[in-house]
Simulated scan of single mutants.
Amino acid sequence: MIRRTSEIAASAALCALLLLSACGGGSDETWIAEVNGQQIPISQLRRILEARFELEPDVSREDILNEELSQLVTQQVILNRAHELGIEVTQREADTRLRKLHGNDFSGIDSEFLNEIRKQMLLERTELEDLADRIRFPESALVLYFEENRRRYRTPERVRIRQIVVEDEAKARQLRAQLGEGADFATLAAEHSLAPEAGEGGLLPAFARGEMPEVFDEAFKLRPGGLSRVLESPYGFHLLRSETRIPAHDPELTEVRDAVRMELQQKRLAELRRGWLRGLRRNANIRVNERLLETLL
C-alpha cells in the first residue's frame, strides 16, 4: 500500500465530499481522477484497493474506495502546488531519508518505494513552504510553552545493565554461583546467554523504569556493580548486573529549544492544515472518472 504522511490522512474526510460530487470524466480507461490536467492512473488506485480489501474484509468497499481516492486526489493537489513553488527532492535526499528508515541495507527496496519516499518528502516540504510564515514563534512564545510543559521535557532516571538469559533455572543458579566467585559477567553472557545482545557481553542500552518488561524493574534496586538474584520471565531465567545509573534530569530551555520549537510548529501546522488544504482544493479543477468507479468495487 502506498505510504502517506499522517497529515495527508487527516484530510481524507474533508476531501471525500468534494470528490463524490465532482463531475464525471470521459471514456478514457486509464485514469480515475484528474487534478488540473494531471491524471491519476486507475492502476495506482487499484493496487491500493486490492491491499485494503484483503486486510480489511469487514469494512465497506465503497467506504475504502472513497477514502483512498480522496487520499490520491489530495496528494495530487499538493504535488501540483509543489510544482508551482519549484520544490524538488533530489535522489540523494531521498536516499538519506531511506537510510534513516532502513539503515544502509537497501536490499529488497525497489524504485517504486523510493519514488514514494520522494513523494512523501515533497508533500511535507510543500506544506512547510506554504505555511512557513505562520509557524514562526518569538522567543517569548518558546519560553511560555516550555514553562507550561516543563515536566514533559524531564528525563527520568535510567540504568544501564548487562544480562544473561538461559532456559532453565538450574543453569542460571550455576552461573550466578560462578559470578559470585569472580567470573566475568560479559564473558559468561557471550558464552551462555540466549539474548540477542550476548555478543556485546549482555550489555543493554540505557532504559527508564517501565520501558522494559517487568523483570527489568529489579535493575533499579541494584547499585552499580551489583548482581541480581535469579529472575524468571516468559523469556527464561535472567541474571542482571548493574553498570551505571543515570540520574533524572530537568533541562533548561537552552538544552531543548529546538525540540520546543518543533513541537510548537507541529501543533500550529495541525491547526492550519485543514484550511490550507481546503484552499488548495477550492482553486483546483478536479474531475473524477465516475464511470470507472463501479468497476473497482
Rank of each mutant, 00 (worst) to 15 (best):
M1I: 08
I2V: 03
R3E: 13
S6V: 11
S6D: 15
S6Y: 10
S11R: 04
L14A: 04
A16T: 05
L18A: 09
L19W: 00
A22G: 00
G25M: 07
S27I: 09
A33G: 08
N36V: 04
P41R: 03
S43H: 05
S43N: 05
L45A: 04
L49M: 13
A51F: 03
E54N: 01
L55E: 13
E56D: 12
S60M: 07
R61Q: 15
D63V: 06
L65E: 03
N66A: 12
E67V: 06
S70G: 10
L72A: 03
Q76N: 02
I78N: 01
N80F: 09
H83R: 14
H83S: 05
E84N: 02
G86Y: 05
G86M: 12
E88Y: 11
D95Q: 14
L101F: 02
H102A: 15
N104W: 11
D105Q: 10
D105N: 14
D105W: 06
D105L: 13
I109C: 13
I109E: 13
E112K: 11
F113K: 04
L114Q: 09
N115W: 07
N115D: 15
N115M: 14
N115Y: 12
N115A: 13
E116Q: 05
R118D: 10
K119C: 04
K119T: 06
E129W: 06
I135C: 12
I135H: 07
P138D: 06
P138L: 07
E139G: 00
F146V: 01
F146K: 00
E147R: 13
R152S: 09
R160T: 12
R162P: 04
R173L: 15
Q174G: 07
R176E: 00
A177E: 15
Q178H: 10
G182R: 05
F185M: 11
T187L: 12
A190N: 04
L194V: 00
P196R: 02
P196H: 01
G199L: 07
G199T: 01
G210P: 01
P213F: 09
E214Y: 04
E218S: 02
P224A: 06
G226Y: 00
V230T: 05
V230A: 01
L231E: 09
L231I: 05
G236V: 03
R241A: 10
R245H: 12
D250M: 12
L253E: 10
L253I: 12
T254Y: 02
V256T: 02
R257T: 09
D258G: 01
V260F: 08
M262C: 04
E263G: 01
Q265V: 11
R268W: 02
L269Q: 04
W276Y: 15
L277D: 02
G279V: 03
L280N: 07
L280G: 08
L280W: 08
L280Q: 14
R282Y: 15
R282M: 15
A284T: 05
V288S: 02
